[in-house]
């Protein structure tokens, strides 16, 4: 065998090994998602989705957890979207390259890295105790908002920066102010990208447990919250509770709850990806 054949053989073996590694990454994902669907689907029924939990959560539905998660997601969006998008606009359209801007970027990187349980501690310290909101949807939404902020800021900034600079120059040369340029040209053009980022950020918030452990979550609260100051059940925490904290839990309910949470999160993911690819196909620049 000459060296060139040998080299080709090595290359083949190497590429084969890499594809095995890649398979090793994605196969478990497919299996896990498939398995949860397989085990969880039988649990899904009208009562399961719209009923209150009964018999110490061992029967009945998970409506309060579903509603709690929806409220939390909406609450998080209310605080984090305007703030995050505005911050992204600042970084992309206004900020000069100076010390302050570098500090802001450092802060965002730092926010993105803080462990979720530390957000929980912070939310407990500031919102629950210091501001006296109690364990409540409000305290949880605020905590999740700050956690989501870096995701929204960085994806929105990327979307804004993708808008060609020439549009801005032309708009300004036509006598538009900076804000008019942003509102009439830059924002509409980057909107799909921003929405994608927002959904991806909220997706993460919806699936998180640690930040709501001490700020919102009620172990067992078989009714719907009716004010932002109410504590509430939430899907991820409920799943944690019924899978590790309550003995004698029917497996079906655990997988059913996991499936609902998964659908919630994957649905958001799918929505985000669809918006992104649609907008890319439509774009003229």
């Amino acid at each position: 065998m000459n060296t060139s054949q040998q080299r080709n053989l090595i290359q083949k073996a190497g590429f084969g090994m890499l594809s095995v590694v890649a398979l090793l990454t994605v196969l478990p994902i497919v299996l896990v998602v498939g398995y949860i669907f397989y085990q969880g689907l039988p649990a899904i029924s009208f009562e399961f989705l719209t009923g209150l939990p009964r018999e110490g959560m061992r029967a009945g539905g998970i409506l309060p957890a579903i509603v709690g998660t929806i409220y939390l997601t909406i609450g998080t969006a209310i605080f984090s979207v305007p703030l995050g998008v505005a911050a992204a606009i600042y970084l992309s359209e206004y900020a000069q390259d100076n010390l302050l801007t570098r500090l802001i970027r450092l802060a965002i990187i730092n926010l993105a890295g803080i462990p979720s349980v530390v957000y929980g501690l912070f939310g407990l310290g500031l919102f629950v105790l210091f501001l006296n909101f109690g364990t409540s949807l409000l305290a949880g939404s605020l905590t999740l908002s700050i956690m989501t902020l870096p995701v929204i800021i960085s994806t929105a900034e990327e979307a804004l920066r993708a808008v060609p600079q020439s549009f801005r120059v032309v708009s300004i040369s036509l006598g538009a102010t900076r804000w008019q340029t942003i509102r009439r040209i830059v924002l509409p053009e980057s909107l799909p990208g921003i929405i994608t980022g927002v959904i991806l950020g909220l997706e993460r918030a919806a699936g998180e447990t640690a930040p709501i452990l001490f700020t919102v979550a009620a172990f067992f609260l078989p009714r719907l919250p009716d004010s932002p100051f109410d504590a509430s059940m939430a899907l991820p925490y409920h799943l944690f509770v019924i899978s590790t904290q309550v003995p004698g839990m029917p497996l079906k309910l655990q997988y059913g709850t996991a499936l609902v949470l998964l659908c919630f999160v994957l649905g958001m993911n799918l929505l985000a990806t669809t918006i992104r690819s649609r907008a890319r196909a439509k774009r003229q620049w």
Binding site: V32, E208, N269
Partner: peptide, 21 residues
């Protein structure tokens, strides 16, 4: 997209699979 799905899996769901399987 599959890797993105993995990134989006809530940690409790992974925990459940870890615990049960």
């Amino acid at each position: 997209p599959l890797v993105e799905v993995l990134g989006g899996l809530p940690s409790v769901v992974l925990g459940l699979i870890g615990f049960l399987i």
